[in-house]
Amino acid sequence: MALLFSAAIITQLTYKAVKFDLQQRRYGQGVQLLGKFFGAEQPLPEFEFLYLKRNNYSQVAESRGSMSTLYNTKYDGFLKLADGTRLHLLQHQLKEVALQHINKIAQELDVPLRDLTEVQH
């Protein structure tokens, strides 16, 4: 039981992360646990652009007697690199908040920002 509880705590404290070292021109994708980054670093290509995209997500909730699917929309912010790599930087339920955060990143990196939230597929 203690092992299961420990695994549950670690799962809650671990999340996907992207790490940038702009001075050394390196980046890494991995996980962060208690403030420590775990992941392999790679050379950082030039930045192409940042973009915000609207995505629809579904989640299945099950109980003994029923099953239901919950649908919601989230706004995801990405950075596209010159080598074609796409890095997921942020996600938020409110477009205004996501746009505010990704706009700040665009200004700090001096990278163009594209709002693709109204693009129809």
Rank of each mutant, 00 (worst) to 15 (best):
M1N: 08
M1C: 03
A2M: 09
L4M: 08
S6N: 10
A7T: 01
I9A: 11
T11Y: 15
T11E: 14
Q12L: 15
L13I: 02
T14W: 05
Y15I: 01
K16D: 13
K16N: 13
A17Q: 12
V18S: 04
K19W: 07
K19D: 07
D21M: 01
Q23Y: 07
Q24F: 00
Q24V: 03
R25F: 02
R26D: 05
L33M: 02
L33F: 10
G35R: 04
F37M: 03
F37A: 06
F37H: 05
F37R: 03
F37I: 02
A40P: 01
E41T: 10
Q42R: 15
P43S: 04
F47L: 01
E48C: 08
L52A: 11
R54K: 15
R54A: 15
S58R: 12
Q59P: 01
V60D: 08
V60M: 08
R64K: 12
R64A: 13
R64G: 12
R64T: 10
S66Q: 12
M67V: 09
S68C: 07
T69V: 14
T73D: 14
K74V: 07
G77W: 00
G77C: 06
K80D: 13
D83N: 15
T85G: 05
L87K: 04
H88A: 11
L89H: 02
Q91T: 15
H92R: 08
H92K: 09
Q93C: 00
Q93H: 08
K95R: 14
K95W: 08
E96C: 03
V97G: 00
I102N: 03
I102D: 02
K104M: 12
K104W: 10
I105L: 13
A106V: 04
A106H: 02
E108W: 01
E108K: 14
D110G: 07
D110C: 06
P112G: 11
R114C: 07
D115Q: 09
L116R: 15
V119N: 03
H121T: 12
